[in-house]
Amino acid sequence: MMEKDKECLLSMLDSKGFTIFITFTITLIVIRVIYVIHRSGKPMRPKTSKPVSTLIVLGSGGHTAEMLNLLSVLQRGRFAPRYYIAAATDNLSLQKARMFENSTNDETGVATAEFMQIYRSREVGQSYISSALTTSIAIAHALWLMIKIRPQVILCNGPGTCFPLCLIAFLFKIVGIKWPFIFYVESIARVKKLSLCGLLLYKLRIADQFYVQWPQLQQKYHRALYVGCLM
């Protein structure tokens, strides 16, 4: 009797059971993803003044200037510690961020900023085969940095490097490691069309809050919040 049961169980596991198990798991994941998407964009913190660890993504071509402009009106004490990330090929951005950090004295007087570089998934003009390799390296590096930092808040405005970081933050939410709030401000240079990075973060509903600087974009993307020009 016992033998028979066992055999039955094994065969079930082999065929039907396995299928059921997989289906069940996938369903659970899908439910979790839907829950996370549904939950994203809604504030979860009660009224507080406890500081949040903040990841700030910088990038050449105006992104850094816009980001520093935003940081200059945010209260330092609330967004601390601050982790600045820029592409490994971009030395200027971190230099500007350092100057910004030094120019204004922190209320606490403690150095609360760190500066990091990240590999870029692809440089302009790179071939597809080598792109695949460099992209995987870049994703692994982004994962490593995100595990190390585990930020509560991500501020970004569109350099390509911010997409893998935001995607990993979203995975953190799904797995339940951490719930980083993602704030995305589309660059002022985008008037009629979102950047690829912005479009992905908007369509996949990865960004908790999505801001645009031109009314034309808000008309096209209704979930975006129009905030006027930052520069």
């Binding site: 504030p43 935003l70 401000v185 809050q209 801001y211 905030v227 006027g228």
Partner: peptide
């Protein structure tokens, strides 16, 4: 331009006074 509107929205979202 003015970055304050964004800053206010971020602060409100995060529950800062």
């Amino acid at each position: 331009g003015d970055a304050k509107p964004v800053a206010n929205l971020i602060n409100r979202f995060l529950g800062f006074p």
